[in-house]
Amino acid sequence: MSERIPLTLITGFLGSGKTTLLGHLLRDPLLSDAVVLVNELGEVPLDHHLLRQVDEKTVMLDSGCVCCTIRTDLVDELRDLQVRQYRGEIPAFRRVIVETTGLADPVPVLGTLLQDPLLAAHYMADGVVTTVDAINAPLQARRQPEWVKQVVVADRIVLTKTDLAGADQPLVEALVRDRNPVAELLVADHGAISAAALIGLGVLAEDRRAEQVQAWLAAVEADPGDHDHAHDHDEYDHHAGVHAFALRFEEPLDWTMFGLWLAMLLQSHGEDILRVKGLLDTGAEGPLVLHGVQHVIHPPTHLAAWPDDDHASRIVLIVRNIARTDVEQSLRTFDRLAKPEPATTRGILA
């Protein structure tokens, strides 16, 4: 398979400065060979030779959940781009930027890239960039579930309007960190930020997968907040029940049973399993790398070797209103079921 084209998703709530950010990014030579798909040509003028408009159209799949919808507009547009590039009707492009609407759920875009066979062969998610308006974030965090989803799935979060937020900026940063301790938090100076900080993240690149998991583990472990408070209802109100935690298993996990368990967990709690990343010891030489956003689980890959001396399975989850202990106990029970009972010595000793 030829190298897939990285697709960066730029999302963020209404008025959070997505288009202003995009306008600055498009001046960077790094994006000279990018195709830019925007939902609407808004007030902020965007100047780019491969700027195209798409209308967000979704088709719900049989499973009926929102994150498993297919963005048919993107399927059509991305397929058309491939065909036109092949025919020489448009210049060759090496990356794609998609800007969503302010109320969009970004997960269907990621799901669409996996669900459509042609898209899966030619494109790969590069990362999700979410803009957060530092002035209105506290209100949006309380009232807008779309805001929470956009923040939780981000790989980079860009705080905007910080010049107006003043002393409140640390509070907004804490608010964002509570919901997503694993994304890198950056501040835009009037929309300006280095393109290199947001583009080419390669969150699914095979050679960077272990590094990504390690970064998540470090972020969750370094986070001073208590993120395992799913039974604390005051905290639910404060954090909308979203918290991150890491699980650790010293013994190898049975992959077949793990897949069964996770598929079952996603069926029953998929809306609340916001993200999952992990290095799993399945008894092979190297670890198996797991990466998922809600129901969208990317095909896991085996690494040839562990990235460090720690060979225990480590899984980071960002969930809503689910306790760490419940998840851990459940996985341990299922895993035990897959393993043979230890041989009893009673018969021999008798």
């Binding site: 368990w261 079952m264 967990l265 069926q267 029953s268 709690h269 689910i322 419940d326 998840v327 106990q329 459940s330 029970t333 299922f334 079921l337």
Partner: peptide, 14 residues
Amino acid sequence: VALDPLDSTLLERL
């Protein structure tokens, strides 16, 4: 009603 792997009744049955 989905089968819930976090359900204590299901875990006891296993």
